[in-house]
């Protein structure tokens, strides 16, 4: 009897795990979402910069990144540039990334700039 009761729950779990998006590691997320503007090396010279009115931040620069707190970086990734009075060209990634993934990305940025 107990086995029969667990069976539907097991299938429900399978269904949930088969349809929910999985968390990705920071390096993969950086490639997928950030490279397009911030560049393959993170220097702000990405594929899209040619016709941009505001240049993306150089993530490898300790000078450009050192003044930003982890909380600011989290906020700008989640809510976009306007949330910290910066450019609309930096979009909000809150619907693409979980809070945990964004925290991981902040740590990844700190490695790129070797600051903070």
């Amino acid at each position: 009897m107990r086995k029969n009761k667990l069976f539907p729950a097991f299938f429900m779990m399978l269904l949930i795990f088969s349809t929910a998006a999985w968390p990705d590691d920071a390096e993969d997320n950086y490639k997928n979402y950030c490279w397009q503007c911030h560049g393959m090396s993170g220097d702000g010279m990405g594929l899209n910069v040619q016709d941009m009115s505001v240049q993306p931040r150089d993530h490898t620069s300790a000078k450009a990144m050192g003044g930003r707190s982890d909380a600011d970086l989290f906020k700008v990734i989640k809510e976009g540039g306007l949330a910290i009075d910066k450019s609309v060209l930096m979009p909000p990634w809150g619907d693409s990334l979980s809070d945990d993934e964004i925290h991981d990305l902040v740590k990844y940025l700190r490695k790129l700039c070797q600051c903070g």
Partner: peptide, 18 residues
Amino acid sequence: FNGCMACHEIEPGYGGLS
């Protein structure tokens, strides 16, 4: 207002490429 041109060309050769 929305910065969509960062990633999209709005005419051939003008706009983002990703």
